[in-house]
Amino acid sequence: MKTSYVSNLAVQNAMRSTIQQGQLEVIKLQLEVTTGKFADAGAELGATSSRAVSLKNELARLENLKDTNAVVTQRLSASQMSLETMRKAAEQINTTLIATLGNDDASRLSIAKTDINGALQAFSAAANVQFNGEFLLSGINTDVMPLTEYTAGSPAKISFDDAFGAFKLANGITDDSEITAAQMTNFIGIVEGMYTGSQWTTDWSSASDQNIISRISANEVVPSTTNANSDGVRKFALAAVITTELLGLDLASDVRTVVNMSAQNYAQQASTGLIKESSTLGISESRVTKANTSLDGQIKLIQTHVNDIEGVDPYEASTRMNTLLTQIETSYTLTSRLQQLSLINFL
Rank of each mutant, 00 (worst) to 15 (best):
S17M: 10
T330E: 08
A125P: 08
L238V: 03
T257E: 13
M261K: 11
N345Y: 08
Q340S: 15
K168G: 13
V222G: 05
V312L: 05
S124N: 11
K300G: 10
R51V: 11
A156R: 09
T18S: 12
I140N: 08
N265Q: 15
A112G: 13
T244N: 12
E192F: 02
I111G: 01
E245S: 06
S77A: 09
D231R: 11
K56E: 07
S4W: 09
S198N: 11
R61Q: 08
I328A: 08
N128V: 11
A182H: 02
V241S: 05
S286C: 01
E178Q: 15
I188K: 07
I283P: 05
D296T: 07
M81S: 15
T142H: 08
Q12S: 10
F346R: 15
P314N: 05
T280E: 13
G172F: 02
G118Q: 09
M15N: 14
R87A: 14
L137E: 06
D203S: 09
I299C: 03
L31E: 10
P223F: 03
M321S: 11
G248D: 10
G36D: 03
I179N: 09
T304M: 09
F131N: 11
D115K: 09
D104Y: 04
N117V: 15
L169Q: 12
T244A: 06
I190A: 08
Q303L: 00
Y332T: 07
E310R: 12
M81W: 04
T114K: 13
T180H: 03
N57Y: 04
T185N: 11
K157I: 06
L341N: 07
K37I: 08
N141H: 07
S214L: 12
A47N: 10
A70D: 13
N219F: 13
D313P: 02
G118W: 05
K37M: 14
A14N: 13
G189S: 13
A291G: 01
S4Q: 13
W200S: 08
L274F: 05
P223Q: 07
E192M: 04
Q92L: 07
N345I: 10
T180P: 03
A170H: 04
A237E: 00
L55E: 03
I302G: 07
V26K: 01
K88T: 15
D209G: 11
N186M: 06
L147N: 13
N186A: 15
D250M: 06
N260Y: 00
R87P: 04
Q121E: 15
D175R: 14
E58P: 00
Y266G: 03
V144T: 12
T180F: 04
Q12W: 00
L247S: 06
T148F: 02
K290H: 10
A170K: 08
E329Y: 03
Q20S: 14
P155S: 04
S224C: 10
A228Q: 03
I173R: 02
F164P: 10
V71R: 06
D161H: 07
F135E: 08
Q30G: 03
G193D: 05
V71Q: 05
Y266T: 01
